[in-house]
Structure formats: C-alpha cells, structure tokens
Write a protein that binds this DNA or RNA. Sequence first.
RNA 1: UGGGGUGUCGCCAAGUUGGUAAGGCACAAGGUUUUGAUCCUUGCAUGCGUUGGUUCGAGUCCAGCCACCCCAGCCA
Length: 599
Amino acid sequence: MTASSPPNAKHGNADKSHNSAEAAGKSPSHFIRHMIEQDLGLDKHNGRVQTRFPPEPNGFLHIGHAKSICLNFGLAQQFQERARAACNLRFDDTNPAKESQEFIDAIKADIEWLGFEWNGEVRYTSSYFQHLYDFALQLIRNGKAYVCSLTPDEAREYRGTLTEPGRNSPYRERSVDENLDLFQRMQAGEFADGEHSLRAKIDMASPNINMRDPVIYRIRKLRHHQTADSWNVYPMYDYAHCISDALEHITHSLCTLEFEDHRPLYDWILLNLEPDSLRQACHALGNMGADEPYVLPQQTEFARLNINYTVMSKRKLKEMVELGLVSGWDDPRMPTLSGLRRRGYTPAAIRHFCDIIGMSRSESIVDVGMLEHSIRDDLDTNAPRAMCVLRPLKVTLTNYPDDKQEMLSLPCHPKNDMGHREIPFGKTLYIDRSDFEQVPPPGFKRLSPEREVRLRGAYVIRCDEVITDDSGEVVELRCHADLDTLGKNPEGRKVKGVIHWVPAESALAAEVRIYDRLFNNENPDDKSLGDFKNSLNPDSLQILTGCLVEPSLASAAPEASFQFEREGYFCVDRHDSRPDRLVFNRTVSLRDSWGKQNG
RNA sequence: UGGGGUGUCGCCAAGUUGGUAAGGCACAAGGUUUUGAUCCUUGCAUGCGUUGGUUCGAGUCCAGCCACCCCAGCCA
C-alpha cells in the first residue's frame, strides 16, 4: 500500500503560494474532518483513513471535481501522521455507452497536474465485474434479487410516483432457480437490451423511490473500453459503487448531496451480502491484511461546487465542445482543469481555492472572484514581471541621440529576488494607446500633452507634440526625456504616473488572447432564462495581434506565467505559441481601482 | 399532498456540552509604492429564514410556520 504524498506540482511557479493555509501547512477544518477525527478517536477503522476519488470517464474533469479531489486526496495527506491514510483513484466505468479511454487518460493527467498521487495502481470498477456478478448470484440465491421482465416503460408504471407507492412486479416471485438461469443467460447474451433486468428485492412501497426494487443489472451488448466483449450485463451505479468501496476497504466514501437518498440502498446492498464473502474478496484483492478487522465503508455527502457566471454540468460542457462554441475541453474559458491550466491557473491556486471555499452541506454559489483571488495571490508572488504593450503607440524621444542605445536592467520582481532582465533603451519606443489622452480626465496619471510620466525602469518623459493622421488618429508622440531621472526622481517636482513601454527596435511581436467570463449571466443554469447557451458572452474572447513584448520573453517556455506590468497575468499558450510567433493568454487582469472607478 | 436535505453579513463559511456572532472574498476609507498592482491600517451582522416557547441567558434546546434544493434513468 503506497501512501499518497504531498502535492508536488511539476508546473513551474506553482507551489510557492505564500501566506495561504496550505503554505502554512493547515487547511481549514470542516465537518468531514471532524467526523474522521472522531472515528480515529474511536478507532473505528483500526487506524486507517481510506478514501477514493471515483470519476466516471465520460468527460473531462472540472473545477467542481477539483473540490472532490482536494477533499479525498487532501484528507489522505492530512491524516498521514496520525493514521495509515491513502486515497485511491477508481474509474467508475459501469456504463460503456458513455465512456472512453480518451477521458481516462485526460483525467489521470489532470489529477497528476493538480499535484496528487493515488494509492497504488489505478482502479477500475470494471475490474470488479466478476466479483460483482458473483455477488449478484449470491443475492439471487438468498432470495434478495430477481430477474424482472418488465419493459422499462412498464417498470416505470409499476414504480409508482413520489406520493404513491409502487406495485410489485409480476416477476417478483420467480424461483431462485429460474432467476439464476435467466441471469446467467442474460450474461450469456441470449437476450436483447432491455428484455430483462436484475432487481434487488426490497420494498415497492418505500417512500424512498430508490428502495423500490432498484435495477442492479441491465443488459447492454456493448464493447467496454476495459473489458472488451466479456460482458453482456453491466451493473448499475448503486450496486457497483458500494461494493467497489467495500472491496477496496474504503473507510469514508464521500460524495455529493444528490446521492443522499441513495445511502439507504448503499447500506442495504452491503448489509444483505454475506459479510464474510465481502471480507474474503477484499482480502483476495490484497486490500486488507489477514488479521485486520473488516469494516464496511460509510457514505457521507457534501455540497457540490457551483460558481457564478459558470456552468459546471458535464453535459453542458460537453455540449459546448461538441457544438464548437469553444475550442475544446481545454479552451481557456472552460472551467475544466485542462481549460484552467491553459488559461494559466496553477495547481497551487486551484488547491488554495478549494481550501478557502470551505466544505459544507448547504448548496451555495461561490463568487468567481474567489477563484480570481486565488490565482492573483499565487501569481503576484511567483510570476516574474515583464512589459507588454497591447495596443502600441509610437513615441520618439527628440532629445535622445539617434544612435544611442543603453541596456537597462530591471528586477523581475519588486519584492522577491528573482533576478533581473535586460531591456535595451533607445530613441524610439512604444507605449500603450490607453496610456495617452489628448484631453485627460480628472485624476488621469498617465501621459497627455505637456505633461510628464515615468517610463517604468527608465526616464521621465514629457509629451511635446502629438502627431495625427488624416483621420485625426494619434499616430506618434514626440516627447523629450529628462536624462537626469534614470533611477532617481526629478528635482523639485514629483511625477505621479508610471507607464510601461517596449523598445521599438528589439521588441517582439506577439498575439495576446484576452479572455472574459464565458457567460454574461450570474446563473446560466437559471431555467427561466431558457437554454443556458442564451447566456453566452459574445465577447468572451478577444484576440489582439500586433502586440509587442520586451525581448527577454523570447525564451519564455510554454505555460510560463508572467505579470505584464499594469495589465495582468499572462501565460505562454501551451499549444499555439512558437518562438517566432509568441502567443499569450490572459489568465486574469490586475485589480484595477482606476478602471473600476471610471467604468 | 411522499421521502431526503438546507437556511448565520452582498458571496463563501466557523460557531465544541446554551453564556453574550471567527475567518476569507467583495466593498469602503487612509498609509506605503518607479505596477492606479502588491503590502499595511481601519471599517463592514444588537444580528443568525420566521413566529412562539423553555431559560437568569438561545445562532445553539423545543414546537409551528416559510423559502429553496434533490429524488419517479434498465445514467452516474
């Protein structure tokens, strides 16, 4: 049994998050931790804490899954000192119609990227199919399951409604022998999909619909991505999940709130199997010691994550991918882990986010601002600074010698020691158009005619002349530099504004992709708005070409993050950026009290 | 009109056995600053869905209301 180890993100500047609970080595506690602590105190599980993360490989992981991953893997880490703690990765692959190997590979990559390590080998529910089948046979032998030959439509009628009890299936009292024979023939491929099903014999009058003789096996003549053509019957979630947990000797089976109603069924299945058969199977699989006490897993539910201006349903994300509304599962606007990664979110920021949102049983919608705060917090301390001019405006320094060029050295970070980078400075350079106004609004601290501004890391300049083209658009600024202001403030006056710039001769061309929220509506899931796609933000992607970045960025590696000073945090696109054609994605803007105040 | 849940500041969320409402985000005001960033300081619930009750004392106990969420897949 390999214990999972502490997060170890391979990603560049991912793991140095400061003053966060994680960095301090303590994550906030919550009801699930309290419960485990209590169980440990009672020695309920012989000093073990065994969790599992059980995704179905039918799509990519999103930030909501990150909450569950951080919970399950995080718990395993947090209890490392006090218990034998570990977290399994198990693909819950009981529905071959929707699953694929592509998703399995993507999910594994995302979990590793997030910085977690699973216990031992990856597990698959499908690898328990034989056990599951044998347990089904056992239930039949014990008169606790029967083959039902109602059609799906008929079964629905017999089930009753929320307020009326269901009726017993006419097949409910089939003999054990007939059930055994039928079920085996179902697996042998003698029947078509839907012709029969195997149901647990519980109580058709239960107020909990899940207990009204739930189907536990259905016929699906489909090739499975792991077991190929071995099976014609596949187990249902409720049946497979609890048994898989039991086989892996899971202590705490954590899931989201909507499964709360299923908990009685989870328990019923386990309690109605011969206890020793479960224990023996668990032991045979090497998931428990011979002398170890065998304890059944216990399901506990927590609220799933919702974030405003975001959709989290896998179905909807998949729809956007399939309709081409986004470039793929890893489109930087997607809340998928691969999308966030491509956007420039770091594993540490996502983990920190999962820490600060808390864990409870009340359904809530977290403000995206929390996510943005997490990444700003990380990148502020870890991302080197650089200058990038998004919309270039030429500036000529009239009093600077034509052929002179001096090398300026700027620190890569204002506080942390991250070294320096060199930027050549010459007579002509570019600043951002938004940093110049012919008629400056009150409080404007940038450049305007007759006024001064500091060029970051260089001189104070004054704008003498504005050159416009025929249409009246400003095309060039002629300024002069106060040559006595390099590294020091001018005498007798204070220059408030500081703007970024890029040297005309050595700046590098770049494409910059500015991302905004994918949805305009705070709650795209709101059914009164109609289809969620109605809330799509038409301006969620803005591609800026002709941007100029300082030459030090020539060697920027894919996925490297930078703060483009006064603009925001950007990362090198891991797919599209080339040394000769740099592409940056804006991860998030800087907080901007000026822009906020001025709309 | 069945069953299961949840309701503490604009958004998350702590609130052990009842003892007089943590923290984060956001926001606001100051200070520092060659990033209108960061950082620092300060402010931000006489109130805990609501109405009653028990008690010297209730977010915490009791009762009744109200609101919202989940469940009638051979999906997970």
